[in-house]
Amino acid sequence: MLLIHCPYCAQTLPELEFTYAGEAHIARPDASSPVSDEEWRNFLFIRTNVKGPHYERWRHSHGCGRFFNAVRDTVSDRFLITYKAGEKRPELSDLLEKSK
């Protein structure tokens, strides 16, 4: 069972309190103006499916209820960082440097 740091609660808590919520930084296109089929398909279905550091969303569903972002290595299952929704996507090179 992983321990996950909630950036809103500022606490590291057991995985049981959290729910995975898919890849991060996929913005919903503004559908009030025309959006191509391809763009909408990409938004709905196309994911990077990386082997390695993955930008993804989690929700502190049995805690503060907030969605937040994380970078987790899909090979080691290790979190490199968690950060609040809306914050800038951290550079991978900085994270890998820090984790060394």
Binding site: T19, A21, A27, R28, R57, R59, S61, G65, R66, F67, A85, G86
Partner: peptide
């Protein structure tokens, strides 16, 4: 959960 998702992340 779905409503919170849109509210927290799309329609802030």
């Amino acid at each position: 959960n779905m409503m919170e998702d849109y509210l927290q992340t799309e329609w802030t």
